[in-house]
Design a protein around this nucleic acid. Structure first.
Lengths: 140, 140
DNA sequence: GCCTTCGGTTGACAATGTCAACTAATTGAA
DNA sequence: TTCAATTAGTTGACATTGTCAACCGAAGGC
């Protein structure tokens, strides 16, 4: 098994996946980028949460998170309130509007994910995720 | 199995993998980017080949390929010669210097790949690649 | 010969990623 | 209590990666 095969497979899959996502979002009339949407999913999943928590979850640079959050706040998709215990931090959550946007996102991704997983059964998918996780953990 | 789990796993794995690669290249004193190196690997694998072939293999935009090839030609890592049958095209291959650089690249990646695959056996890796390929094909 | 398609180039811009410097807040040790 | 070290988030600057368009000359098909 040549090492390069994993790397190349990953690159190609990532490109293809992102392209599929972008197409799905564009088809749904969503103007948000993959990064914005990924951040929103993290917020939904972690809500209520802080910027730091999102950065940890998504393994992204806090500077990037700040910028993405700024856009999402401006768009009224998320809202912030003070953190009860830490004045440096804010608590973030989806707005009602944001919940609607998330539904659009979920709907638009449905097709992309169905295509991605066509012909793969639940065990395959679970294996893929499990192996991915192992590899991520290996690199941390 | 929530759809978002695959996507999020992929994002995280890709980020981690690229970071590991960049670190490995930097540690080896290589100044080439992940994209340059990926292009070189394609050339080595396909040599002799054309820009178009590389673009196909790596699923990248031909404009990007042109730019990357330009850098690699400038650095003397690859060389070009006329295409026997198509005056629009050139045949590309690694130079002797380029072969040396590739050895450095392989050496530097060794560690990163070992870490990536720690605790995974050959069957796991093969499964990962197989599933990745299936998914890429699904999206094309 | 003519028209369409194609390989590669260049331009322009968007998206994503990294690192540094900074401020204000928090924490923990003395 | 004090103070130094650390931390959450912000801003700046720049690099890397990705997309799409326009273009030119070459190739291919009718």
């Amino acid at each position: 098994m040549p090492d390069t095969l994993i790397g190349e497979s990953l690159h190609q899959l990532m490109h293809a996946y992102k392209r599929a996502l972008r197409q799905a979002y564009a088809d749904a009339g969503l103007t948000l980028t993959v990064s914005h949407i990924r951040t929103l999913k993290a917020i939904r999943s972690l809500a209520p949460c802080t910027a730091q928590r999102i950065a940890q979850r998504t393994q992204r640079d806090k500077a990037q998170i700040t910028r993405l959050l700024h856009d999402l706040l401006d768009a009224g998709i998320i809202a912030k309130r003070p953190h009860a215990e830490d004045r440096r931090s804010r608590i973030l959550a989806l707005t009602a509007h944001g919940h609607g946007v998330m539904e659009q996102i979920d709907e638009s991704e449905r097709h992309a994910h169905q295509r991605l997983a066509a012909g793969l059964d639940a065990a395959d998918l679970e294996t893929f995720v499990r192996l991915s996780r192992l590899m991520v953990d290996n690199l941390h």
